[in-house]
């Protein structure tokens, strides 16, 4: 399940980055190649997410024919399924406009219009999980924003990694690449800090023992959130959370970005390698974030409804 969340979020982030770079390319020409390459990457990643979804369905043929089977429009899976289904032709059109170099204005307008849909694909992966109301970790208030930010961050890393690889192995290296990587570095600092802030707020929220209201009118027990907090930060998932998400996914990229900026001249011969490690680190952290959140869902809160409260008292 975490594969489709990761690749779905990544595709959304990649598209947003591609359009942002396309718009930057109006003034800064060095972004054009980066934007074009990123736009080509979105469709295969989105297709990969779709393939993983189909792979995990019990009846893939019914999932692929979702317009005929999806009926419950209160379910996030239906809303998300349609947004992914809608995104595929639009992303393909955007990539085709790049490939055939048809009309830059039409392409940019399409990109700006489609960006919210792809952004929603990243956002929706969090909403999908929060539909399972008896899982205290799957919070509707925090997960969608966390996944949206992570989608953009991994999108930056994915596009950056491909750009670095292409510069080193795919074509002659241009002087423009350091400028593009520097801007990506600034963006990474911003989104890493946002994700750290979001994670801190999310964990604070869980540890503050909130009562999660579910859609059936029952209430998940008050200590469910604390149990989830301890499960993630102190239980079996703690190494993944601290070393994987916080360490590998956020802290190391942040440090490497600062090193790139401060010791720019010293590390110049190795800058692509350092960037490559940074991008791979962010992508690994993105996968581990989904892993922790998905498997954290194994913990369901004790109920305040049957069977707990309807048991016969001891002594009988």
């Amino acid at each position: 399940m975490l594969e489709e969340f990761f690749f779905g979020g990544l595709s959304g982030g990649l598209f947003v980055i591609a359009v942002a770079a396309d718009l930057l390319g109006i003034k800064f020409k060095q972004f054009e190649k980066f934007a074009r390459m990123t736009s080509y990457l979105v469709l295969p990643v989105l297709a990969l997410a779709g393939a993983f979804i189909a792979f995990h369905l019990g009846k893939p043929e019914r999932g692929i024919l979702f317009p005929f089977f999806f009926k419950n429009y209160d379910s996030w899976l239906v809303i998300g399924g349609w947004s992914v289904g809608l995104a595929v032709p639009l992303v393909a059109t955007y990539a085709a406009l790049w490939y055939y170099k048809i009309n830059a204005t039409i392409r940019r307008v399409l990109g700006v219009i489609v960006s919210p849909i792809l952004g929603f694909v990243s956002f929706y992966t969090g909403l999908l999980l929060s539909g399972a109301m008896f899982v205290p970790l799957w919070s509707q208030e925090y997960l969608p924003y966390l996944f949206l930010n992570s989608g953009v961050l991994t999108g930056l890393a994915g596009s950056g990694l491909m750009y670095v690889l292409y510069q080193n192995f795919g074509s002659s290296k241009s002087e423009e690449s350091s400028g593009v990587l520097r801007i990506i570095g600034y963006a990474i600092i911003f989104f890493v800090l946002v994700e750290l802030f979001e994670l801190q707020r999310f964990m604070d929220h869980l540890s503050s023992n909130p009562v999660k209201i579910d859609n059936s009118g029952y209430f998940v027990a008050p200590n469910g959130s604390v149990m989830a907090y301890e499960y993630v930060t102190q239980g079996v998932l703690a190494p993944w959370f601290w070393w994987g998400i916080i360490g590998l996914g956020l802290t190391i990229p942040l440090i490497l970005t600062f090193i790139e900026m401060i010791f720019n001249k010293v590390i110049q011969p190795y800058v692509d390698w350092i960037s490559g490690v940074k991008f791979a680190s962010i992508l690994s952290g993105g996968i581990i974030l989904r892993f922790v959140i998905v498997w954290g869902g194994e913990l369901k809160a004790p109920l305040t409804v049957i069977p707990q409260l309807n048991q016969i008292p001891f002594g009988g």
Binding site: N223, Q308, I312, P313, G315
Partner: peptide, 22 residues
């Protein structure tokens, strides 16, 4: 049935209540 059994057993702790409401 539940009412009858509860009445026959008398009062006491409700199983699971300590977990649900620490």
């Amino acid at each position: 049935v539940v009412r009858y059994r509860a009445a026959a057993r008398g009062s006491g702790n409700i199983w699971g209540a300590g977990t649900a409401y620490p």
